[in-house]
């Protein structure tokens, strides 16, 4: 009896402890709003990237983001890789040639500039982090290579951030010379709203709205961060089917072997 009481006491203490924890959660969540959940073509175990969306997203990145945000881990040739935006080798050569790559040193020891080739990676807009900070009022624009995996909420967060700007901060909130964004932790973001309706000229008839730009560029960044996603899911499906088959066979084998044994 005494022991039962002690047990109950323990359970109560435990419950109170966990309850306190729950209160804490609510308190801590007041910071930024949770990102908007978007129904992405690539979510779920059979999700695939939408090639046209990735191509549009690349266009948005190139025209609206690339001036400040590099993508130093992605190579131009990746744009033609299977499971990606699906550009052709020829298109990739044209895209690459648009960029200027610093190469060298040449025979005289000087660095020189040449047009990009498919083997090159996206050049960073700033020579180093200090230059990036100096040109952007102290806030370094992050590299975009893995940004979709480097933010809690992933593409939902990126999309929400793009559409989460407010012209005027709510009453009583001072963001200084920064901008108010519903989804940015702390709400005061150094980046000016980067997307505007009609700001990027789509050629496939997709409505040219901030909402579409935000979705397309988020999808593109997901691909940039996880270029092997389609291969991963495809192989994963095969592996799991195989394992289920093997487990069934092993189950019957094991049962056969143990059939005469009491255990």
């Amino acid at each position: 009896m005494i022991k039962t009481l002690r047990l109950r006491a323990l359970a109560t203490v435990l419950g109170v402890a966990l309850g306190l924890g729950a209160v804490g959660v609510v308190h801590a969540a007041g910071e930024a709003e949770p990102p908007i959940a978007v129904d992405w073509s690539f979510s779920g175990p059979f999700g695939r990237f939408d090639r046209a969306q990735l191509q549009r997203g690349f266009q948005v990145y190139k025209e609206s983001c690339a001036a400040c945000h590099g993508m130093e881990l992605v190579a131009f040739r990746n744009l033609a890789d299977p499971g990606g935006p699906g550009f052709t080798e020829e298109q990739v050569k044209v895209i690459a040639a648009d960029y200027t790559i610093e190469d060298g040193p040449d025979d005289l020891g000087d660095m020189f500039e040449r047009p990009g080739e498919p083997k090159d990676r996206f050049p960073s807009p700033f020579p180093n982090e200090n230059a990036a900070a100096a040109a952007n009022g102290g806030a370094v624009p992050p590299d975009f290579s893995v940004i979709a995996k480097a933010r809690a909420g992933g593409t939902d967060y990126i999309y929400s951030l793009m559409v989460g700007y407010e012209d005027e901060p709510p009453a009583g909130v001072d963001v200084g010379d920064k901008y108010y964004n519903h989804y940015f932790p702390g709400h005061a973001i150094a980046m000016a709203p980067p997307l505007f309706d009609e700001g990027v000229e789509y050629t496939d008839g997709t409505p040219m709205t901030v909402d579409n730009y935000a979705k397309d560029v988020s999808a593109f960044l997901m691909w940039a961060a996880e270029p092997k996603m389609e291969e991963r899911k495809r192989i994963g499906f095969q592996v799991i089917i195989y394992l289920i088959l093997l487990s069934a066979l092993l189950y019957f084998t094991k049962r056969k072997i143990w059939s005469a044994i009491d255990h």
Binding site: L246, L249, F252
Partner: peptide, 29 residues
């Protein structure tokens, strides 16, 4: 297995088929 009297000696063909299949599938993996 044979030495531990599991009584499965009556249907050696079917039992062996199961074992061989399991082994082959595992080898493929």
């Amino acid at each position: 297995t044979d030495s531990t009297a599991d009584g499965a000696g009556q249907e050696p063909t079917r039992r062996d088929f199961l074992y061989v299949t399991t082994g082959a599938v595992a080898a493929v993996g």
